[in-house]
Amino acid sequence: MTESDDSALARQLAHFGLSDTEIQTYLAVLENGEAKASTIADATGVSKRYVYSVCEELEDQGFVEVNDHVVPTKIRAKRPEDVIEILSNRLEEIEPALERRFSAAETRPQRFDVIKSRVTVVKRINEYISEAEYRVAISIPHSTLPQVREALQDAVERGVLVLLLVTDTDTDGSEFAEYDRPVASAIRSWNVPIPVMIAVDRELGVISSSEMMTVANSDERAISLAQKRIVPTLFGSFLANFWLSADEVYVIEPAPLGRTYESIEHAVFQATLQLRAGNSVTARVEATSNADHEATETVTGRVLETNQGIAEPVTNEFPIEHSLVLETDEGRTTIGGHGAFLEEYAARTITLEDAE
């Protein structure tokens, strides 16, 4: 084996956690096939006692066999194919953890798409709803609702907050109460042809004119976007410009307590429903303090009130304000969501529990 081969092999072995001394010892054993500790000591420049110690570590990791039933003790290198199998098994053992970590960190490419077909718009809306993890806000003509109804119902069943604004209709909401499954967490209606829009979580969105969905052979275009910096703004525009101007026609029953929410809007909405039902609620919040944006801490307290703009009567001062006011052991404190700046804490997760 040449010096360059030795260096390359040493670098590869280091990737598997072997120290420099273990690598040099193992290479010396490989070179000899089987050798006495004294021979390995001479080749590596370390004491014979230390060779025994290092070889025991190498034996535990499956690289060598130490035969101490003979005198002097012999160290034998395991067959290369056996070592490769051991190393391969180690890689297979960490694969599930790597996959989980990769999935958690994987991000969708940021993009804009111009859509020319109504069929494609509906398909994209259904696709995005099916991917929702915690929040959907959608405005859509009443005539188009049947085409996305099932996807919205599935999202509600998954525990997603669904805000549905039905346009071009004078519905009083009675039809929604008759559905076999809730189609949304809250529904408002507005008898005007406002733009079709959907904002899913903090990343996915679609915008089109109402005409594209309701007029045959329309030459209008829609925009589909996957943009983390823009979709939250789209959600805020939905609340401020359209939601609050429409009439509330349906609000879902409060979910059972004991659930954890990643969306501040959903947690505040559910806490509001519980308080209005006369229930006492405790919130356990994993949050970062606005005084220290890095350290995560647990804040627990009884929910005193909520600031929200989803269910009537609205209690927030501006449309995107959604927060909890808690009574903790240290006194009153306020909990906001992602990027909160008015509140004392920015929540990562919120668990609502029975305070009784």
Rank of each mutant, 00 (worst) to 15 (best):
R108S: 14
S210C: 01
L98W: 00
K116W: 03
Y50A: 09
D5R: 13
V119S: 15
F238Y: 10
I350V: 14
D292E: 12
T288Q: 13
G339C: 12
A37I: 09
D113L: 14
E57F: 04
I75R: 03
K36S: 07
V192K: 10
T107H: 14
E265T: 03
A199C: 00
P109N: 13
H69G: 14
V166L: 03
D20P: 14
E157F: 08
G173E: 04
T21I: 13
N191I: 07
E297R: 15
S53G: 12
V51F: 08
V183C: 01
N290H: 08
W243P: 05
A295K: 06
K116T: 15
H322R: 07
T300C: 08
E106T: 12
G337L: 05
F238V: 04
E59I: 06
Q61S: 14
T39V: 04
E321L: 15
I140R: 00
S7E: 13
P232L: 06
A104P: 02
E95P: 00
V314E: 13
F102G: 05
H293E: 10
A97I: 06
A137D: 08
P146Y: 11
E312P: 07
T306P: 09
K228N: 05
V231T: 06
M212T: 00
S53E: 14
N279I: 09
E131T: 12
L87N: 07
Q153C: 05
T44Q: 09
V200W: 04
S117T: 07
E356G: 13
Q153Y: 01
R108D: 14
A287V: 12
G278A: 08
T328A: 02
S4M: 13
E3F: 04
T260K: 11
R118H: 01
S47H: 12
D6C: 11
L152V: 06
L257H: 05
A295Q: 09
M1K: 13
A43L: 11
V200D: 02
T351C: 01
D329S: 15
G159P: 05
R118Q: 03
T73P: 05
K36G: 06
N279D: 03
V206N: 03
F235I: 00
V206F: 01
E99D: 08
G236D: 14
V119I: 09
N290P: 06
I94S: 15
E286W: 03
G205E: 02
M1C: 08
T349N: 07
A186F: 04
G278N: 04
E56L: 08
S38Y: 01
I138S: 01
T120V: 05
F238R: 05
A291E: 15
L342S: 10
T306C: 14
D172Y: 07
A240E: 14
A14P: 03
V46T: 12
A355G: 04
L324H: 05
V51P: 07
G33R: 03
Q147N: 07
A8E: 08
V162D: 08
K116R: 11
M213G: 01
L326N: 05
A41Q: 08
P182F: 00
T39I: 00
P256D: 03
Y345M: 13
P193L: 03
G337M: 10
A151W: 00
R118S: 10
E81F: 11
E65L: 02
I86Y: 07
E175K: 02
E330L: 02
M1W: 07
Y345Q: 10
V121I: 03
C55T: 11
L18T: 02
A186S: 12
L98G: 02
E353R: 01
T120M: 00
D201W: 01
I138G: 02
